[in-house]
Simulated assay, not measured.
Amino acid sequence: MTDVGAAFSRRRRPDDSADDVRVTYESLPHGRTLIMGVLNVTTDSFSDGGRWLRAEAAIAHGLELAAAGADIIDVGGESTRPGARRIAVAEEQSRVVPVIQELARRGLAVSVDTMNASTAEAAIGAGAVLVNDVSGGLSDAQMAETIIRLDAPFIVSHWRGPSDTMNSRATYGNVVAEAGAELEYRVAELVVRGMNPDRMLVDPGLGFSKNSAHNWAILGHLDRFTRIGLPVIVGASRKRFLGELVAEGAPMEDRDFVSAVTAALAAQHGAWAVRVHDVETTKAALAVAGKWKEGAR
């Protein structure tokens, strides 16, 4: 693609079903923090479980996220909230693959949020340009081998254990030093096994085996994670530690403003992308951060 901006504009027409413009990881925009729009095709995600479970509804919402300014649509079929139970791989794939296939056919950049190697492979085959594994390839022993064989772009997250036990693992002497070192070690381990470092990204895993104080410490020291030398994804949107800043019992949407502020600050501190539910508000916040950076220059 010679003109990324034009291609993104073209693929965001929801009525243009015949475009079939395929995007690659390399063709994603450069020079600014990207927006990953969350698309949960689940029954039990903490924010919007069940809302986009039907394929038609999920596809429509993916197109809405792109029209609002999302650079990547992150499609997940299995909740990873604290306490969430695993679902059958076949069920996960039946939820996400048709959605990914159609959104990719429309020319959207799509990532798959999965801990299952076979789902990652099916998603790449359907047109996904990124695999987002919150376990960093630790949940499925075949994930690393699959990613290496496909040479697929891969987001490596900091992870200490599955959803049903992760809260009990939130024990650190210094969360920034320990989570940073553990993530760096995992990246090195994957590179030694043969994964292409030019197609790897990292995520500090906010909320995964971390309490509120841990999350804020990581955000306050995001440079520890950018120093790893790979693009950094920050996924803070609507999480519990941000919910503590709004009125108790407020709807999830009331967390969007503080989520957008967090995204803008993450951008200021080097985030390659932010993973969010409310794309429109985030886009405005990132525009402010971008102009601020321009002013500083």
Rank of each mutant, 00 (worst) to 15 (best):
R149V: 07
R149Q: 12
L150S: 07
D151P: 08
D151Y: 07
A152R: 04
P153F: 02
F154N: 00
I155S: 10
I155G: 04
V156S: 00
S157W: 13
H158L: 05
W159M: 04
G161I: 07
P162V: 12
P162R: 09
P162C: 10
D164N: 14
M166V: 08
N167G: 10
N167I: 11
N167D: 14
S168R: 14
R169E: 14
A170L: 05
T171A: 14
T171K: 15
Y172I: 09
G173E: 15
G173K: 14
G173Q: 15
N174I: 10
N174A: 13
V175H: 01
V176R: 01
A177G: 09
A177R: 14
E178H: 08
E178D: 10
E178C: 08
A179L: 10
G180E: 02
E182P: 04
L183D: 01
E184L: 13
R186A: 12
R186C: 06
R186E: 12
A188R: 13
A188Q: 12
L190H: 11
V191P: 01
V191N: 01
V191E: 05
V192Q: 15
V192A: 12
N196W: 01
P197E: 03
P197Q: 07
P197I: 01
D198K: 13
D198I: 00
D198H: 15
R199L: 13
L201K: 09
V202Y: 05
G205K: 02
L206N: 04
F208H: 06
A213C: 11
H214G: 03
N215Y: 09
W216S: 05
W216M: 11
W216A: 03
W216C: 06
I218P: 00
L219G: 03
L219Y: 08
G220M: 10
H221F: 09
H221L: 03
D223C: 00
R224A: 13
F225W: 05
F225E: 01
I228K: 06
I228F: 05
G229T: 01
L230H: 02
L230S: 03
I233W: 05
G235L: 06
G235E: 04
A236T: 12
A236W: 01
R238G: 03
R238C: 03
R238T: 08
R238L: 05
K239I: 11
R240W: 14
R240N: 14
F241A: 09
L242V: 07
L242C: 07
G243R: 15
E244P: 04
L245Y: 09
P251T: 08
M252N: 13
E253H: 15
D254N: 14
R255F: 07
R255V: 06
R255C: 11
V258K: 06
A260T: 09
A260C: 09
V261G: 11
T262Q: 05
A264G: 09
L265A: 13
A266M: 08
A266Q: 08
Q268G: 13
Q268I: 06
Q268Y: 09
Q268K: 15
H269L: 00
H269I: 02
G270M: 00
G270R: 00
G270N: 03
A271W: 05
V274C: 07
V274E: 02
R275E: 02
R275K: 08
V276L: 04
